[in-house]
Design a protein around this nucleic acid. Structure first.
Lengths: 207, 207
DNA sequence: GTCGATTATTGCAGTCTCTGCACTTTTGCG
DNA sequence: CGCAAAAGTGCAGAGACTGCAATAATCGAC
């Protein structure tokens, strides 16, 4: 009888191993030479993969540097968000944080990535750009939850409101991330950090 | 005696005229065919300019679509911001709005741009990306003002705080922009719209 | 106006990113 | 094993972008 854990097939395991090898190679090269002085061919040579396959995996030159696109959050996480009754912005941030943590990135790759982001802000901007792609979907999600709790808003009002909620959440995210990394790195603390960040925003916008 | 207005030299005027011609051509093409199906060569053909010159002007294919990078705000505007004593986030938004308005973009180009953004969110993301380039500078600015008013913060606290202020301001910006365009388009109203947007954020983060 | 100096525009050659397509190799499975 | 599906690869080519050198337009002094 096979093990109960959903063991990945050979294909999946190969793919994962390869992905990590390429990401690691790309990050090392970028940290050493700077992003602009690294070519896809260099990455491919270093990680023993064909350029064509590289693009099949990552799509763009920067793909291996900024990591996989944030996956659509789990159905269960979404459900939880929709039915939660905490402060909206905090619940949304919790959703974002949890779906990020669910990707369980390699620790060393994660650290290299952060170092690189600090050195090359353009990359971080790129990643943000990609997140904006999810923007529409996220706004819809927030609107769905608002519809259940505040059904007396017009479409436009609701959309504005949802956009603002998302902006607040995304804006507070870097601060939460910094706290999380520097203070503990413990997942259970995330909720507290989120609360803290939102409280600061409240002070900022208080008259 | 020459006129009192600082009349531009022939060079400047040519450059401005050319820029607008290219931007208009690029926007028309993008609105008609979609950004991906427009090539730089097409834009150059339509606006009677050499591709090399195109890149000298705009740097990237999208440059003509998203418009010139937001210039560093006027010294006088910065001074005003630093010494204003209104709510920090609102003053910052006012600074942003005023330095945008100072660029006095063509009305029709402005409208085309907005239409295109709505149709192709990736472009808007790009523009946001470029703004992030100014992020560092803006954070410094906010910190300078905070230093005068709240001198008892540690460096890290101050930086977090400044980042949050900027996030709030940038997040609220689209809403203000929408209000401004749809409601009146009158510059004198901007302040009221900003106030309104901040008030909404306050409600959002209120427990 | 003319002329030399400055600045802008352009053509060209070349590099790099990225894509479609056809072909080969690897993997999963009966 | 042997066959079908999936993944990896090579190749040709389009398109974005850059450095450099040549050309053209503008400016400022005379």
């Amino acid at each position: 009888m096979p093990t109960a854990t959903p063991v990945l097939g050979l294909r999946e395991r190969n793919r994962l191993r390869r992905t990590r090898r390429v990401e690691r190679a790309a990050l090392e090269l970028a940290l050493e030479h700077g992003v602009d002085h690294v070519t896809v061919d260099m990455i491919c040579e270093a990680s023993d993969i064909s350029p064509r396959t590289y693009f099949n995996y990552f799509g763009t030159k920067e793909g291996a540097l900024i990591g996989p696109a944030p996956s659509v959050p789990d159905e269960s996480l979404i459900e939880e968000f929709l039915h939660a009754r905490g402060p909206l912005a905090e619940d949304l941030m919790l959703l974002m944080a949890r779906s990020f943590l669910a990707t369980a990135p390699d620790r060393d790759i994660f650290v290299m990535r952060r170092t690189l982001y600090a050195r090359e802000p353009a990359l971080q901007a790129l990643q943000m750009t990609r997140m904006v792609g999810k923007r529409q979907a996220t706004v819809e999600l927030v609107m769905r939850r608002m519809a259940e709790q505040l059904p007396d808003l017009t479409e436009t009002e609701a959309r504005d409101e949802a956009q603002l909620v998302m902006s607040v959440a995304m804006g507070a995210f870097p601060v939460v991330s910094r706290l999380w990394i520097e203070e503990s790195g413990d997942e259970s603390e995330v909720e507290a950090y989120i609360h803290e960040a939102i409280a600061r925003i409240r002070r900022i916008v208080s008259p």
